[in-house]
Every structure is written in C-alpha cells, then in structure tokens.
Design a protein around this nucleic acid. Structure first.
Length: 608
RNA sequence: GGUCCCGUAGCUCAAUGGAUAGAGCAACUGCCUUCUAAGCAGUAGGUUACUGGUUCGACCCCAGUCGGGAUCACCA
C-alpha cells in the first residue's frame, strides 16, 4: 500500500487518541475496492460499532485529494467490519506513473522508499561445493536461492559480494585422488571426452566400490562390520595421502592440483549454463588454517576454557546451547574453528555490514553456535550475520542419497529441461523457422525458466519434493507461463511502431495525459493495481530472504495480464484514447514482468 | 533422550491474527476465421494431523497428543 496514504490515515486523531494502529489489507477480489481498512480492532477499542466508525470516516473522504485537487476515494463500502475503499482512477494513474522498475529505481527510488532498508555492503555466500563430485540438485537449490537473493538485494541498492567456499581438501578429496591413481591408468578427462567434474566423480564412486568390496571381504573373514570399515586398507591409504598432502608432499600436491583443475573446468561450465556467478572464491585449502589465533585470543580473554587434556572449549550453556570444542587436545582445529577464522577474514577483506550464508538447514545448529561464538569474541558484526537456511530437496521416492546413486545431477537436469522445451517448440509453427543455435538458446531459456521457477516459488525454509515431471511443466503456475505473457506483449509492441506513430508521452510515460473519459474495466484496474505491488513484493523478498515472494508476484502480474489480454483489445481498439492507454498498460506490464523474472535469474524472451 | 523444524484438496505449493482457506497439476465442460490457445472461462475436490486454550476473530499464538525430519562427535 502507498506509504503516504497509510501515514495520513495513521495520523488521524480517531486512532491516535486511542493509540490504535489501523489494520490494512488488499481488498478481496469479490468486493468492490482495492484497499481495505479492518475496523474490528479500532471499533472495539473505541467502544463503538464498525458502522459508527465508518460513518465518522466518511467525512474525511472529501479532504483527501491528489496534488491536482482531484479526489482520492472513488468508493467506500462497509461489509461487516471491513471498509472497502476504491481509489480514484486519477490516483491509480499517478501510482502507475511512479511505477517502479529496476531500470528506474536507482534514479527515482520508489513509492515506498521510506521502507527501504539502509543501503549496505553485504557478503553473500552460496554454492560451496566439494571438489570430488559434480553438482547435484541440492546445489541447484542453493545456487538459485543465492543468485536470486543477490539480484534482489542488488536491485535495492545494496553492494553485494558473491562468494563461495570451495571444499577442495580433506579425506573425501583424497579418496578420488587415490582411486584415480589406482585405476585411472593416467587418463585425463579430454582422453575420454568427459566433463572434468564428472570424470573425478567417477573415481570417487570407484573408491567407494573398492572400499565396500574390502569391507565385505573382511566381514567374510570374520571381522565385524564396524571394524572392517575402520580398518579397510584403502581407507588407510587415503588417510596416508591426506597426511602427505598436509606435509606438502610434492607428488600428492601436484596430483591434487591437477584433479581439482579438472573439476573447476567442469564447474565453470555448469555455473555458466545455469547463469550463476561469483565475485570471489575462498578455498578451504587456504582457510582451514584460519581461526586458531582467534581461539588463542579468546582463551587469553577468558572467553574460552582449556580442559585438563588441553582441548579448548566455548561454553554456551548461558545462552541455552551446549559446549563446543574449538581445538582438539592435539592442537588441531575443527570445522567451527575455520568458520570463525573465515568470517573474521571476510570482515577484513570486505568490511561488510551484513553477511549471509546460504546453507542447508541441517546446519542450523552449527550457525547458531558460530554466531554466538563470534558474539562472545566481541565482534560487533556478529548479530548481522544471517543463515539463509533452506530445506532439503527430496525426490518422490524419498531422500537423495549420493551413496546409493540416488541423486539428480545438475548437468543432466539442464539437458532434460532444455530438451523438453525444444520438443515443445517443435509443435509451434511460428518458431520453426529459427536458426538452430537460436532455437537451442531459446529452449535453454525456457527450460531453465521452468526449473528455476519451480524451485524458487517454494519458501526456502521448507523442505520440498522435486517431482521431475512437474518441474518441467510449462503450463499454469510456472516460469514459461510468465515468459509467455512477456513474449505476447513484446510481439504486440513490436507492431506498434508500424501501426501507430504515437508520441511516447501518449503511451504511458506520462500517464497524466491519459485521462480516460470513462470508468476503467475490471481487467484494466486489476493490472494497474498489480503495478503497485511490485515494490512491496521486492521489499518483502529482501526482508524475509525469500525470492518466492517475487515469483508469486510475477505469476500474479502475468495472470492479470492474460485476463486483460483476453478481455481488452489493444491494437485493434478503435478508440484512440483507449488504445493509447492500453498500449501504455502493456509497456509497463512488460517492464515489470521482465524485471521480476530477472530477479529470479530468468530470461524474458521476445517471442516463444 | 535434549533442542529445533514440519504436518493445508489425490499430488506440488500459497495464505501480516481478519471476510466463504487460495493457485497450479491431475479429472471433467466450454472458447482459436479475431493483437501468440505455453492462453481464457467454468465444474468437482478441505473436520488446515488430533485435543484443548487465548479473542470480537486462529492454518497462524499457547499447552498437550500423534506422525515425519534435522541436530546434539576431540567428523566435515
């Protein structure tokens, strides 16, 4: 809702004398009006019936005017305790003219600019893959959330630094290295025409197979499973390799570098195709040594304690959490230790106001503890760290399990959605004349749109089920539905120049000159009303770290347009005034659809 | 076991404490000689897991019960 209007209502003595904040909501579709004042609370506080308040308010309506003196309120009807207000067409024209788009925002701000959070510098972490296997569906949700939040926060004027931590070291990396050494026969990805990350992932699987075989063999020889798993020779070899890596053994380090470089080449391709990018990579091989000095510092300050074995602990019982170990008795660090160090490092690197970690909700407790310890260490920015926690992605058959090969590979997924979009395009005569590369690019845009929208329309905090069949759907509540509305407008507007050599000012840039000498049709009013919802949706998405609000908005706007398109002729409208008005509506709709899609990382093709 | 999260139409998801709980998919009915039918209009589908409580009003807040998940390592 319009902030000045809200402010005006809130200031009325009717409320202020009784210390009441009026409750507003969007008017439900089945009632006349766009804005609803809920009178139950105020009525109760005032000891009066809603009817009486509505009557009292009636005297205020005439005093409510726009800058040019025309009235603000078009209609006011009480239904139960709900006062439904219809706003004047002049108001909606003005509101429309302030219509916020990404391209105009930095210059003009937008109508609800008071509610804009202060612009700040934000470090946003997402993706954070391991270098022993390719990206899968879980990474995809992470990437899409991170990328969309980046776009959303950036559009509100924040400076956002996109970072990922690459988990490039550790026992799991050594496992694939070892397997390649044993079974790889010196082959490289290019020798077998493989994508680097898949190539390395293949050896990780081979390791697991060899490991299981050894375990079964040991069990057959009479050893317990537990012991067999702990003592498998190949695991010993992997551990030895990790030690050698840590000691800087040249052969091992060279192998490590070579295989990681293959993986990065593969990741680059996947990210590129998915439309995801980063401003800075942090490598665990460099950050895993960080944090020890922080712990020493905390120990000196008396924030941490050392036990009799020499291990260092953070006591968090005072804030309802457990104790957390930070340094083992042998002086080595744990995961938490490096996360502390990395956070501190990033503050030094960027001087951020806020830091956001896009990490699955299985680590909720970890981040609670991390932020609590940063706070104990006295970092003022500790309470400006946020864990953008998202739920796991399940398959219809249940949880994804990489060990059982029950994973959806990111590259395969993109192949499938692109292929389906292309097949669908084949049905359309208007798209058959396209050049092949153009076709494939469009198919990718549409396929990715289906995938991205399917994932982003769900509240991040909720666990979601990924149904492959639904995810490639292109009808109904989907990305292609929104894209289609955009493409329809684009193809229509492309003809405007030929059909109607109108002044730019007549087609929406200056709506004050577009006074229609008639009441608006419902579809016209609904469309303009949707224009005013863009900024609130964007703000809500940023505030709640939830791109689903933008996805919802894009769908609502597209729906409103489709009805308008069905009900109202545009180019074929004979009345010149109405035609210009509607062309203006189309232009504004197209911009908002394009920008909403962009915030979700989805392309808006000109035709489809 | 302690802590935290979740339970809404057959399925996937919505719904600041507000009106008759909404969409899409799947099912069924209409609408292309008309600016792109990847569309529009309609029918059917609900004890919001259950039991209480708070209040003018509860999917939403509180307590309990049942069901599902996560987490609580000198793992990462």
């Amino acid at each position: 809702m319009d902030a000045p209007l809200r402010a005006w209502f809130a200031e009325q003595s009717l409320w202020t004398e009784r210390n009441i904040e009026p409750v507003w909501q969007e008017t439900r579709k089945e009632f006349e009006g766009e804005l609803t004042l809920v009178l139950f609370g105020p009525a109760k506080a005032a000891g009066a019936k809603p009817e009486l308040l509505a009557t009292m308010l009636e005297s205020f309506w005439p005093s409510l005017t726009l800058e040019n003196g025309s009235p603000l309120i078009r209609s006011a009807r009480l239904a139960g305790g709900f006062l439904n207000l219809g706003l004047s067409y002049a108001y909606w024209r003005q509101r429309w003219s302030m219509g916020y788009t990404l391209s105009t925002a930095p210059v003009h701000g937008h109508p609800d600019s008071e509610s804009l959070p202060k612009r700040s510098k934000i470090v946003l972490e997402y993706s954070s893959p391991n270098t022993n296997k390719p990206l899968h569906l879980g990474h995809v949700r992470n990437n899409l959330l991170g990328d969309s939040m980046y776009r959303i926060l950036k559009s509100l004027g924040h400076e956002v630094v996109r970072v990922q931590v690459i988990n490039d070291r550790g026992i799991h990396i050594c496992k694939s290295m070892l397997a390649w050494q044993k079974f790889g026969e010196g082959l490289q990805p290019k020798d077998v025409n493989a994508k680097g990350d898949h190539f390395v992932g293949h050896y990780y699987v081979l390791y697991e197979k060899a490991f299981q075989a050894q375990v079964e063999e040991a069990i057959a020889a009479g050893v317990t499973r537990e012991e067999a798993e702990a003592t498998a020779p190949i695991l010993q070899e992997a551990r030895t390799m990790l030690l050698q890596w840590e000691l800087g053994n040249e052969a091992v380090v060279n192998l490590w570098k070579m295989m990681n470089s293959w993986v990065y080449e593969g990741f680059d391709i996947t990210y590129e195709r998915l439309g995801i990018g980063f401003d800075r990579n942090y490598y665990e091989s460099q950050t895993y040594v960080l944090g020890k000095n922080l712990v020493e510092h905390g120990l000196a300050q008396g924030v941490f304690r050392k036990d009799e074995k020499g291990a260092v602990w953070a006591d968090l019982q005072d804030i309802g959490l457990d104790s957390k170990i930070l340094l083992r008795s042998d002086g080595t660090s744990v995961y938490m230790t490096q996360d502390l160090g990395t956070a501190d490092q990033r503050q030094k690197d960027w001087g951020f106001d806020r830091m956001i970690y896009t990490v699955a909700d299985e680590q909720n407790y970890h981040f609670k503890v991390l932020f609590a310890i940063l706070d104990k260490l006295g970092f003022a920015w500790a309470n400006r760290c946020h864990h953008l926690s998202y739920g796991m992605v399940d398959l219809p058959s249940g949880r994804m399990k990489s060990r059982e090969g029950k994973v959806v590979d990111a590259d395969d997924l993109m192949d499938v959605v692109q292929g389906l979009a292309e097949a669908k395009m084949g049905d359309s005569e208007k798209l058959q004349a396209m050049a092949l590369d153009e076709r494939q690019e469009l198919a990718l845009q549409i396929g990715l749109s289906a995938l991205k929208f399917y994932i982003l329309k769900v509240d991040p905090s909720k666990r979601m089920t990924f149904n492959p069949e639904d995810s490639i759907d292109m009808q109904g509540h989907t990305g292609p539905f929104v894209q289609y509305a955009h493409a329809r407008i684009a193809s229509m507007l492309a003809r405007v120049v030929d059909l109607e050599p109108v002044e730019p000012s007549k087609v929406g840039l200056n709506p004050w000159s577009l006074d229609l000498h008639r009441a608006w049709l419902p579809a016209e009013l609904e469309l303009v009303r949707q224009f005013s919802q863009f900024a609130p949706a964007l703000n809500l998405a940023a505030e709640k770290y939830n791109p689903a609000h933008v996805a919802d908005y894009a769908y609502s706007l597209a729906t409103a347009f489709n009805r308008f398109y069905h009900d109202c002729p545009v180019l074929q409208e004979s009345n010149a005034e109405t035609r210009s008005f509607r062309i203006g509506l189309c232009q504004q709709t197209r911009l908002l659809l394009r920008d909403s899609l962009d915030l979700l990382g989805i392309k808006a093709p000109q035709r489809m």
